[in-house]
Design a protein around this nucleic acid. Structure first.
Length: 509
RNA sequence: GGUCCGGUAGCUCAGCUGGAUAGAGCAACAGAUUUCUAAUCUGUAGGUCAUAGGUUCGAAUCCUAUCCGGAUCACCA
């Protein structure tokens, strides 16, 4: 029990002992830390009680503090300003609290798995057709911190990732590769695999843009042009060929995806990102049909004349949503439904968090509502950790327009800045080259991590690559620096045979 | 158009389960400090908390309306 809770409990008991018949709950009792300009440690706000109990502030304050004095060991003094009762605690209380922190290496951490509850965190779930960008970094830092925090609180955490490894996006990269005159591979070019796949994707986009432009110049509207596009048809065809498991298409798909994974794993490595299990859309994309059929029998879904299957969520403030196409194939949300059941089978978790950008808020609302109606156990503990986009000073990042900030580039850049700053200061002169690289990496990546986590997830944020990131003020390098200095103090103390004693003993002397 | 989210100092953001005089960092200005873990330190200035109403002892915080910005509303994923 914290000291605030202790005070609140005592005050509550006292208040409920009144003769006016008024009843209060813990929620009614507000205890704040006292602002610096006033004397005291904690402040009890008395206004609500004064009114209900029809007592004068000083009478009530006197009565409460007398009660506190007799029941709270840490009580030292009190004063009243308007309706604010400031409570001062004894120095012994504070020294004990500090001593507790000092002597406990695991202060603030629960024992691993002590909650006896599993929580799944799914992130960053990239597409396999292009390398990670700035937005993924925000996702990864959010997901990792959440997972770490839950673990520190005693949850068993399962980190998972779902790869969008099929469909039109990867087909575009594949098409560009098939039609390239000189074929680049990671081996013959030395380029990181995820970047090669991404380059082909960009190449396709360029050709596609050119084609549309040409068609529009013949007098078509953009919409008509897209319908007439030859490239679009070929991509659709390639996707169908993949679904029909045409050997050379499947082979190429496997190869290009393997390039992507090899590349992206290198980026993961720098970010210390590991998963308990990775899921692939190619393995789940046509699942969920059984679940839909069951739901159909139960009357949760309904079928239209063209035999497409829908769910009506209008009474929940949402729309009608398609879950099976008229040709019987599944859609995005159907596989997500199926995947939840699969994940529950794989890991018996109680809670699940999806770390996904806020553009998918509606999707998750619909998904969770459907799962609730299907009677999924624990469906009320599914959560979408939504976050805003990372934008550039010039506006949004658009991969089709090449205005994307690449994750690998940013990581290199911040590590480089860390290196320059460190060398400027000459602080690492006596450190081995190997050790230096590690330090640059941890300062640079740490700075970026802190920078991206500092902003409330719900807000979109602007990242200015030109200004890069701060190393002064409220930043990770500063915190790291303070830690380094305290460690240095301890080392120096030891070298000079100065003993560091617990705080309460120091106070006594 | 419906729904959801954001709008706080010049900039980037805290504060939002209602509580005392709205806080940081950066930038600006004034000063300190010659490198000793100084990747500094002290101080000054800077705000109609988008706007207008309402609720109340008390509103940046809750409610309503309006304005601005964004997201979303596919037989795409």
């Amino acid at each position: 029990m914290t000291i605030q809770e202790e005070i609140a409990a005592i005050v509550l008991t006292y208040l409920n002992n009144n003769d006016k018949g008024e009843k209060f709950t813990l929620k009614d009792i507000l205890i704040n830390t006292t602002p610096a300009d006033f004397t005291g440690d904690y402040t009890i706000v008395l206004f609500p009680f004064i009114k209900k109990l029809r007592m004068k502030p000083d009478e009530l304050a006197e009565a409460i503090s007398t009660d506190l004095k007799s029941k709270l060991r840490a009580y030292q003094n009190h004063n009243l300003v308007k309706g604010f009762l400031n409570i001062e605690l004894t120095p012994a209380f504070w020294s004990n609290s500090l001593g507790e922190v000092l002597n406990n290496d695991h202060f603030g951490f629960s024992k691993k798995g002590s909650k006896n509850k599993g929580i799944m965190v799914e992130y960053p779930s990239p597409n396999t057709n292009k390398p990670l960008h700035l937005g993924h970094l925000r996702n990864i830092f959010l997901g990792s911190s959440l997972a770490n925090i839950m673990e520190a609180n005693g949850y068993t955490v399962y980190r998972t990732c779902l790869y969008n490894d099929r469909g039109t996006n990867i087909s575009k990269s594949m098409w560009a590769y098939q039609h390239a005159s000189t074929k680049h591979t990671p081996e013959n070019s030395g380029i990181k695999g995820d970047h090669i796949v991404g380059d082909y994707y960009v190449r396709f986009s360029d050709l596609y843009k050119a084609e549309i432009k040409e068609l529009v110049e013949t007098g078509l509207t953009e919409e008509q042009a897209k319908k007439q596009s030859k490239l679009e048809k070929e991509i659709a065809e390639l996707t169908v060929q993949w679904e029909l498991k045409l050997p050379e298409v499947v082979e190429l798909w496997k190869t290009m995806n393997s390039w992507f994974y090899a590349g992206v794993r290198k980026t993961y490595e720098r970010l210390d990102l590991h998963f308990d299990k990775e899921y692939y859309e190619s393995e789940v994309y046509n699942r969920g049909r059984e679940t839909v059929e069951e739901g159909l029998k139960k009357g949760i879904f309904y079928q239209k004349e063209d035999s497409s299957v829908w769910i009506d969520l209008t009474d929940a403030g949402l729309d009608q949503k398609l879950v099976l196409r008229s040709n019987g194939t599944t859609v995005y949300i159907t596989q997500d439904i199926a995947l939840v059941y699969q994940k529950q089978k794989d890991f018996n978790f109680q809670r699940s968090v999806y770390v996904v950008g806020n553009e998918q808020e509606y999707h998750f609302k619909v998904l969770f509502e459907i799962l609730k109606r299907l009677g999924l156990k624990g469906s009320e503990h599914l959560h979408h950790l939504s976050y805003g986009m990372v934008e550039l000073p010039t506006g949004k990042m658009k991969s089709r327009e090449g205005t994307v900030v690449d994750a690998d580039d940013i990581l290199d850049e911040v590590v480089n800045i860390a290196k320059e700053k460190a060398n400027e200061q000459g602080k690492l002169a006596e450190v081995s080259a190997d050790e230096k690289e590690k330090i640059y990496e941890s300062i640079g990546v740490g700075a970026l991590r802190y920078f991206l986590l500092k902003v409330d997830p719900v807000k979109k944020m602007i990242y200015n690559p030109a200004e890069s990131i701060d190393f002064n003020g409220n930043t990770a390098p500063f915190i790291q620096y303070i830690y380094a200095r305290t460690q240095s103090l301890k080392r120096n103390a030891a070298a000079q045979q100065i003993e560091i004693v617990p705080f309460q003993e120091a106070i006594k002397n």
